[in-house]
Amino acid sequence: MIETAEDLLRLEVSDISIALLTGILSEETKLPQPLRISVTADLRCPDRFAPDTPLTASKNYLDLKRAVTEAIPRDVHFGLIESIADHIADTLFLQDPRVRRVSVKIVKLAISHNGESIGLTMVRHAP
């Protein structure tokens, strides 16, 4: 049996700066930590996008941004930034069943010096 590749539409929002309650060290647990978050979502792609294709055939880029800026509760302390990435991915999967894969990159700005990026990238596939 020959397996064919599925066409995907990749939406991206990069370098959102946000401060969230995160960390496990005592100096990290008192104040929100500055983070830089980038999100990529792969969706099932229709055969073609004609010039008059409505937005409903795709996904609003702002949904990705809102999964970071609005959907993360500000009063919850996330011990690990991995749990923030999971929250963002879960939000996008729940919003739209066409989302097949979500990648979340988080950089911890407070420990990044001299231009390096210290953090993680998590990739989750649709349940």
Rank of each mutant, 00 (worst) to 15 (best):
I2K: 14
I2V: 15
T4Y: 06
A5Y: 02
E6H: 13
L9A: 07
L9K: 03
R10M: 06
L11C: 14
E12S: 11
E12W: 01
V13D: 02
I16N: 08
A19V: 10
A19Y: 05
T22K: 03
G23S: 10
E28C: 11
K30H: 12
K30M: 01
L31W: 05
P32Y: 06
P34I: 06
P34V: 07
L35K: 02
V39M: 12
T40P: 00
T40Y: 02
A41L: 13
A41G: 13
D42K: 10
L43M: 07
P46E: 01
P46H: 01
D47I: 05
F49K: 06
F49T: 04
F49E: 08
A50N: 11
A50E: 15
A50C: 09
L55D: 13
T56V: 11
T56Q: 12
A57C: 12
A57T: 08
N60R: 13
N60Q: 15
L62K: 11
L62D: 13
D63F: 05
K65D: 01
R66L: 11
V68M: 06
T69K: 09
R74C: 03
V76E: 09
V76S: 02
F78L: 09
F78D: 04
E82C: 09
E82Q: 15
S83G: 02
A85Y: 03
D86T: 03
I88L: 10
I88Q: 02
I88R: 02
D90N: 10
D90M: 05
T91Q: 09
L92M: 09
L94T: 14
L94H: 15
Q95D: 15
Q95K: 13
P97M: 09
R98S: 07
V99A: 05
V99F: 07
R100F: 05
S103C: 07
V104R: 03
V104A: 04
K105Y: 05
K105V: 06
V107E: 00
L109H: 04
L109I: 09
I111T: 06
S112C: 02
E116G: 00
I118L: 00
G119Q: 14
L120W: 09
L120F: 01
T121W: 03
T121Q: 15
T121F: 05
T121R: 15
M122W: 04
V123Q: 09
P127K: 14
